[in-house]
Design a protein around this nucleic acid. Sequence first.
DNA 1: TACGAATCGACTAAATTAATCAAATAGTCA
DNA 2: TGACTATTTGATTAATTTAGTCGATTCGTA
Lengths: 194, 194
Amino acid sequence: MLVHKDEAKARIIEIARGIFSHFGFKKTTMEEIAFATRKGKSSIYYYFNSKEDIFKAVVEKEADELREHLQNSMSMVLDPIEKLKVYIIVRMNQLKERTNFYSALKSDYLSHLEFIEKIRKNYDQEEVRIVENILREGVENNEFNVDDPHLSSIAIVTAMKGLEIPLLLDDEKKNMNHRIEKMLDFLFYGIVRR
Amino acid sequence: MLVHKDEAKARIIEIARGIFSHFGFKKTTMEEIAFATRKGKSSIYYYFNSKEDIFKAVVEKEADELREHLQNSMSMVLDPIEKLKVYIIVRMNQLKERTNFYSALKSDYLSHLEFIEKIRKNYDQEEVRIVENILREGVENNEFNVDDPHLSSIAIVTAMKGLEIPLLLDDEKKNMNHRIEKMLDFLFYGIVRR
DNA sequence: TACGAATCGACTAAATTAATCAAATAGTCA
DNA sequence: TGACTATTTGATTAATTTAGTCGATTCGTA
């Protein structure tokens, strides 16, 4: 019964993901989620307390998958320079694939909603930590020349955010990899100990 | 002033088309249309009397374009057999390209709304007339073997509608041309005078 | 049968939204 | 300029929509 319930929840999350990704948080109604899951609206509330909760679960699952993908990719690499490179590239490519989802969120220009911001900030902090760890490793290995890893990691993550915008807005996803490589060159030229 | 106003209307129609095509009629709000056109919501009402009116204008424009495309394609062809073939193929391919628009409409399962049905029926009648004319031509040329062109044209249009559904629902657009050809074979084997 | 798990319909309070209107602003031409 | 029209807008409202609740019903199963 416990397992069964979790299965049902997972199914709701997955179906809701599809709807949220197309219509965004605000425009997605509980009734649609219910209808798509072939349940009554009230049944959904048996599994989740609110629309927000479903949305959080969806985003968390999304984040989990991204996280996992990143960890898998990085687990192979030891050298901090390569690690940072892989991290950024994989991250950007994943984002590229998830563009639909994120652009749907943007289309609620309700994005300012507290809890969305909160989720976002949490995830940003996690990213900063990951990058920071890579930087520290690089400093220890004497490969990086960074005096304030924390501040630097914030700068790098911020730079990545900056690259997200043209990625989400434009459809010039083709030049993207090229642009990322450029940025990496620039970044390393300043960071790597010569 | 008159021209200027029409330009503004045309611009609103075009921008609204984009929003409708993504969110469907119901989920699209006047405020969004206004925001996207960089106008106040009330300004939109200066150009259109209602949301319905905007939607009608959008659909009409869409239909006009399809019509024009069909006429262009058919103007080249004289033989009724070829004409019918071209008509069906072009029509289905156009529909394929416009799938986004139509599938957004489906996602309002408010599609039942009277006026959407009405628009649809009007357009269906027009299609029946076109096909009917082609059939009559074919009968006169002694190429077709059809005793009731009107009824037959309804049958053919209905068959095309039948093909629309898998086209809209599935994403197997690849097999589509193949399927259309099959249908045409079947159709002609029964229709063409041997 | 009994008992908890799951579903559902009916309902409400709150939020959203289409449409209106009167007032403000921009544009034009004599 | 000033008078007149075209356009835009903010405030408002009436109607609709929707998130969330609750009590009742059905399902599964032991």
